[in-house]
Structure formats: C-alpha cells, structure tokens
Computed example of a mutant assay.
Amino acid sequence: MADALTGQARVSSMGDLRKLPIEQLINDVQARLGTGFDESTMVRKRRTIGVRSDRSTWVRIEARPLDKAASQGQINNGIEASGLLDGIAKPRWHQAVSWLDELTGVIWRADECALITGPTAKPIGYPLTEPELSSDWWRTLNRSLDSLARQRVTRVATPDTEPITQALVTEAIEQAFPDQVDTTITDQRWVPAHADLNWSNLTAPDCWILDWEDLGLAPRGLDAATLWVASLLVPALADKVFRARCADLDTRSGKLMALFCCSKDLNDPQFDSAPAFEPTARHAAELVADLRR
C-alpha cells in the first residue's frame, strides 16, 4: 500500500486516528492478515485501532511516526516481545505485520492476539467507584506481576511512548517539585514492566492484562505506582493496590516511581481542573516528604 490514509497530510500533522478516514487502512490490514473484521467491535483511539477478526482474535493496529520510532531507538514492539513471557495472565500473541508508509512517514503495525471477551475493569480514565474484584483477581494480578519481574527482556519500557530513563524521571519530578528530592534511582536492578498498567488495561471479573506495546525494563515499582496513582480518586481501591504491591511501593525506587507518575499528571496544565488533582497533589507532597528522610 503506497498510502494508508489516501489524501491525508503527512504524519507530523496527521493527529488523531479517530478523526481520519480509515477504510483503505482497514482493507489493507485485512488483506495482509488474511482475515475479515467485525467492524461493529472496532475501538478507535488517537494512535491505535482495535477490532475483532473473523477468526475470533483481536487485531490492534498502531500508527507510529518514523521520527518517534527513531527517537525510541528500538523498532521491535512490546506486544511481540510479550509473546516470550510466561506465567502471566495476558492474551497470547499470534502474529504481526508491519510496513513503512513513506508518503506519510508512518510505521504501521497490526498485531493479532487471542481475543479476551471480558470487559475492562474501568474504561479510559480514573475510576470513580471501586470495581468488584475478587480475592482470586488480586492473586492473579500479583502472580502475574511477580512473574513478570523475573522474566528476561531487552526492550526499554516506554510509558506514554517515551523510553524511561533516569533523565526522564528527573525531568518530570523536577518540573513538579524543583530542588526538593534526590531523584537518583539507586537500585540499579531494573525489571521488566508492562509500563501502562491502568484500569482500562485490566479486565474483570477475570483478571487479564491487556495492551503490552510498552513492555520493557524499568525501575522497580513502575507498574505498581502507575496503578496506584490511577486509583487515588477511590481511597479504598488505592489502599488495596498499595497492600497488594507494597513490596514494590515501599522501596525507594517504588516511591520515586509513584512520585514520577504523580508528577506527570501534575505537570499537565489541564490536570488542575481534573477530579484527581487534589488527591494526586496531596499524595505527591507526602511522597516528597518521605523521600527527604
């Protein structure tokens, strides 16, 4: 396919996939994978499209600007890398196709995985009420995250599509809390992380962890911190996350990751008016005081 989005602007100004015509792209991916799509199941996001196939699998299509891929320094996708992991409640990865569209400057990729039919624990955004999660659900989550930390991966985790580094952590925390915390990650043993562990990537009542494209090495506690910060609007839920993952969150690395996640939210000018602003700011201040000791 010469141009996945015929007649559209180059990717530098392409913007949101939810707002663009995608008929040619969908037809092309169906042909490349050799299956049809049930378009009534399609989920369109800013840079990804998900859809159920005729062979009862789930296909995730992603557009990645070439300059973004180059800045990450790693072409391989976390979903493919997750196929080598075991002991984790995740969809089985089957295959992928990828290609460069030179006219738009986009690397397109379509991953086909096992279909998980259970609903997500919470749609995109912060939960406003506590989801009903059984003790088996929490055991599955804990077993999966403990197993993940013991695996071997070579990718660097890419939370919010950015490779995580000491410099990235320092920049985010310093912007929110200048000269208040030593941001040095002293624990040099980075571990594999999902790197986007929020409630929209977890299913219930059965626990499955979805969307592994950001998988990679990260400071210990990134996943626990991501889920904890995403739960702060519901104190009982945040407490359960903390109790479940306290072995990670009680470490200095885990506290820095929690402050890193809080700081990223607090650095967003639009977050000031968000319902989660007050609990996030309060817990971030507590973390700053704790890390100074």
Results as ranks from 00 to 15, higher is better:
Val241Cys: 00
Asn198His: 10
Leu266Asn: 02
Leu222Lys: 02
Leu66Pro: 06
Ala31Gly: 07
Ala285Thr: 12
Val241His: 01
Ala236Met: 05
Gln166Lys: 03
Asp223Asn: 09
Leu287Glu: 01
Gln72Val: 05
Lys255Thr: 01
Lys122Asn: 15
Lys264Leu: 08
Thr35Lys: 15
Met1Leu: 13
Pro269Gly: 05
Val241Ala: 05
Arg55Gln: 06
Gln72Cys: 02
Ser53Met: 07
Ile79Val: 12
Ala218His: 07
Val288Cys: 05
Thr140Asp: 14
Arg143Phe: 08
Lys19Tyr: 08
Thr6Arg: 15
Ser40Gly: 04
Pro91Met: 00
Asp136Tyr: 11
Arg64Lys: 13
Glu171Lys: 10
Phe277Lys: 01
Thr203Gly: 01
Ala274Val: 04
Arg47Glu: 11
Asp206Gln: 11
Glu286Pro: 03
Gly83Leu: 00
Asp38Gly: 12
Pro119Leu: 03
Ala157Lys: 04
Arg282Cys: 07
Thr35Glu: 09
Ala70Lys: 15
Glu102Cys: 09
Ala281Phe: 07
Val59Tyr: 00
Ser98Glu: 08
Thr161Asp: 09
Asp182Phe: 06
Gly15Pro: 12
Leu20Lys: 11
Asp146Asn: 11
Thr170Val: 03
Gly125Cys: 02
Ala4Ile: 07
Arg292Asn: 05
Ala274Lys: 04
Thr140Leu: 02
Asp187Ile: 08
Ser231Ile: 12
Ser135Thr: 13
Ile49Met: 05
Trp138Gln: 12
Arg152Asn: 13
Ser12Arg: 13
Leu168Lys: 14
Leu227Met: 03
Ala157Cys: 04
Trp137Glu: 10
Pro163Arg: 07
Ala172Cys: 08
Gln24Ala: 14
Leu266Ser: 02
Asp111Glu: 12
Ala63Asn: 08
Thr48Ile: 14
Asp187Ala: 01
His94Asp: 11
Glu213Leu: 01
Gln74Ile: 10
Pro275Asp: 06
Thr57Met: 05
Ala149Val: 09
Trp108Phe: 14
Met1Asn: 12
Asp265Lys: 13
Leu222Pro: 06
Asp265Gln: 13
Asn77Met: 04
Phe242Ser: 10
Gln24Glu: 00
Ala31Gln: 06
Asp182Arg: 06
Ser82Pro: 13
Arg292Cys: 10
Thr117Met: 10
Lys19Cys: 05
Asp187Cys: 04
Leu227Asn: 03
Thr184Asp: 15
Thr6Glu: 15
Asp179Ile: 14
Gly15Thr: 11
Arg10Asn: 09
Gly36Pro: 06
Pro119Lys: 11
Val234Arg: 04
Ile164Gly: 07
Ser134Lys: 00
Ala284Ser: 08
Asp214Arg: 15
Val106Gln: 10
Thr203Lys: 00
Gly83Met: 03
Ala96Ser: 14
Ala2Thr: 15
Gly78Arg: 01
Phe37Met: 07
Arg92Ala: 11
Ile107Val: 13
Trp190Tyr: 04
Thr165Met: 05
Trp208Leu: 09
Glu286Lys: 04
Ser263Pro: 00
Leu133His: 04
Val156Cys: 03
Leu227Thr: 07
Asn142Cys: 13
Met42Gly: 00
Gln8Asn: 14
Lys68Asn: 05
Gln175Thr: 15
Gln95Thr: 14
Arg282Phe: 15
Ser144Pro: 04
Glu62Met: 07
